[in-house]
Computed example of a mutant assay.
Amino acid sequence: MAAFGTVFMPEMALTTFENNQWSEAKFVSADSIQMHPGAHVLHYSSTCFEGLKAFRHADGSVNIFRMDENIKRMAQSSELLFLPKFDSEQLSQMIKDIVKKYVDEVPAPPGSMYIRPTHIGTEASIGKAAAPSGTSMLYVLLSPVGDYFAGGARPLRLLLAEDGMRCAAHMGMIKSGGNYASALGPILAAKANVNADQILFCPNGDVQETGAANFILIDGNEIITKALDSSFLHGITRASLLTLAADLGMTVSERELSVTELLERAAKPETEAALSGTAAVLTSVGTLIHNDKEIKVGSGEAGPKATRLRQALNQIQWGQVPDTHGWLTKV
């Protein structure tokens, strides 16, 4: 099977912003785009993107999960990067139209159609290091994906890093490529040095996020995660899971979490930890690595609460239970 996110549909939806207006969206070949080598995005990282999924239900219908929230976050990212403001309704229609075009290619659960809207600055000007791009391109790629855990879900190993951040604090809530690039070096070092799967960035002891996912701690009936601020990504899967946790009668605590408290709670047998994100939904964390010591989280295996939350979210996405929160958009 091809690696996750490496297979694309032949066409994508695309619109461009030039002369202070957006073009009519159209379907174009998904194997290339044309832009000047001096394009703003290539030099000054004026880029943001989203990741969302469409799911096939048993009745044959295809439904996109929380599209409105992803579009809202992308609008926020574009604004914070000073990219041209796009029309949210146009992007919504582009997403629905391209998914509809390839509706027969949407896999059945646990597979899905991964949707990647991308907004990039295209103005050919290498003199604009301190100025925004006046032109841009917005496109929507589709990638059918199988089960993220086809090889079996294994609890992750996280290195706690107290001496750095995933990205610049004022960039944290932007879903931009540069943020992932800035985390890559520490993640690769953690893999090589201590066989960690990811780094949990905890600047000055403040538990924040990993390189590509939000962190959640579950202690008994309480689910704990950092309160939203501008320093880290506001995950839509995170928000969905917290809503479902409340539905299940759990206590939801969005607050500061220190490394000291995390390690104390992790030692308790009922404690669970997990990472949330679009691709993997909710992935259990079995081991924390801190100051050259390995600390097992609870049993060290996937716990019942995290498993139940993941199942609850999947059941809505897959159409197995009613969508009481209005999260699905039928194509």
Rank of each mutant, 00 (worst) to 15 (best):
A2Q: 15
F4Y: 11
F4I: 02
F4A: 05
M12D: 05
A13V: 01
L14M: 11
F17Y: 13
E18M: 08
Q21N: 14
S23D: 11
E24W: 03
A25Y: 10
V28D: 06
S29D: 15
A30D: 07
D31K: 05
Q34N: 14
Q34W: 09
H36R: 13
G38I: 01
G38Q: 14
V41W: 00
H43N: 10
C48R: 00
F49W: 07
G51N: 02
L52K: 00
S61N: 12
N63V: 09
I64V: 13
F65Y: 11
F65N: 03
R66N: 04
M67E: 10
R73G: 00
R73M: 02
M74N: 03
A75F: 06
P84G: 01
F86I: 03
E89K: 15
Q90R: 05
Q93H: 12
I95S: 09
D97W: 06
A108F: 08
P109C: 08
P109V: 14
P110A: 04
S112H: 08
R116H: 08
P117L: 00
P117V: 00
T118Q: 07
G121V: 00
I126C: 10
L141G: 02
P144C: 05
P144Q: 06
P144T: 08
P144Y: 10
V145L: 01
A150E: 15
A153D: 13
R157L: 01
R157G: 03
E162G: 10
D163I: 06
M165K: 12
A169K: 12
H170F: 10
G172K: 04
S176R: 08
G177Y: 09
G177L: 00
A181N: 01
L184M: 13
G185P: 01
P186R: 07
L188N: 12
A189M: 11
A190E: 03
A196D: 04
Q198K: 11
Q198R: 11
I199C: 12
I199L: 09
N204H: 14
G205Q: 05
N214M: 04
L217Y: 05
D219H: 13
G220S: 09
N221P: 02
E222Y: 00
E222C: 12
I223F: 08
I224T: 11
T225S: 03
A227H: 08
L228P: 12
D229H: 07
S230V: 12
R238K: 13
L242M: 11
L242T: 04
L244H: 02
D247K: 08
D247H: 14
T251D: 10
V252R: 07
V252Q: 02
S253V: 15
E254W: 03
S258Q: 10
S276N: 10
S276C: 12
G277C: 02
G277P: 02
L282R: 02
S284A: 15
T287W: 00
K293V: 13
E294L: 08
K296V: 15
G298Y: 03
P304T: 06
P304K: 09
P304Q: 11
P304V: 03
R308H: 13
V321M: 07
T324S: 06
T324F: 05
H325L: 02
L328A: 04
K330A: 11
